[in-house]
Amino acid sequence: MEIYEANKYSKLGIKVWPLMVGELWGARELVWQLFIRNFSVRYKQSLLGFAWAIVLPLMAIGTFVLLKKAGIVDIGSTEAPYPVFALIGLSVFQLFSSGLTVGCGALVKAGDMIAKVNFPREVLVLAAAASVVFDFLVKLVLIVCVCGAFHFMPSIGSVFFLFAVIPIILLTLGLMFFFSLANAIFRDVAQIVSIGGTFLMLLTPVLYPVPDRGLFFFRLNPLTALVEGPRDLFISGRISDPSGFFVAAVLSVIIFLTGWRVFHMVEAKIPERL
């Protein structure tokens, strides 16, 4: 039996978790269908199709290679050839930054559907996240190609590479839940996120290795460990700051669970606010 009443979920306490998992499991088919929909719509009127996923990283890295060659920026030495190093960093970081960007639009873009049909709204966020993960997988192909071009052999630890990106995906999902809601009420959020994303990329060791000076400041940023961890695994086979990575991973899980819970609690109020 289905019951609709005010503050339905607030009253449930801890028992809400199995309910949330159940709802999501029941909606897995919908997530898939929406992912397919977003995917085919995105590339319906485009010549390059999903190759667009690699255009931005190639350009960004090309720019940095040029700046480095010209001696304008001093990036320092990296264990792997610089393009490999930067490409991995950027691909992992873009899971986060593109995730937040599409997360802001996830609810707002589906306004019509939300106002008229009843379905678990989480699926919109998850389907958006799925498209970002797909882009990431496309970039992996590019990474392999670039490794081949520079005759770089990834370490044996790179088999765990995909597991090591799970924390940053969870962190992104958690924040996507928050930002999609916030943007549904105040559209300013999307602007802030797009500006903030650019700055965060420069403040996180994505295109450069962790510097020796100001180390404390970089360690405060959980993204540092979350980008560095998978990259270290790929290149050298061991994480240089395992405790930092562990703390950041735990933090990511907490943010994911909090975001999901908050989203679930207030999702019933979304349709009237859109």
Binding site: M1, E2, I3, Y4, E5, A6, K8, I114, A115, K116, V117, N118, A268, K269, P271, E272
Partner: peptide, 14 residues
């Protein structure tokens, strides 16, 4: 239809 949650009262559906 469950699109809006009621502010008062309750709806039961079977």
């Amino acid at each position: 239809n469950g699109i809006f949650m009621p502010d008062t009262g309750r709806i039961e559906l079977n």
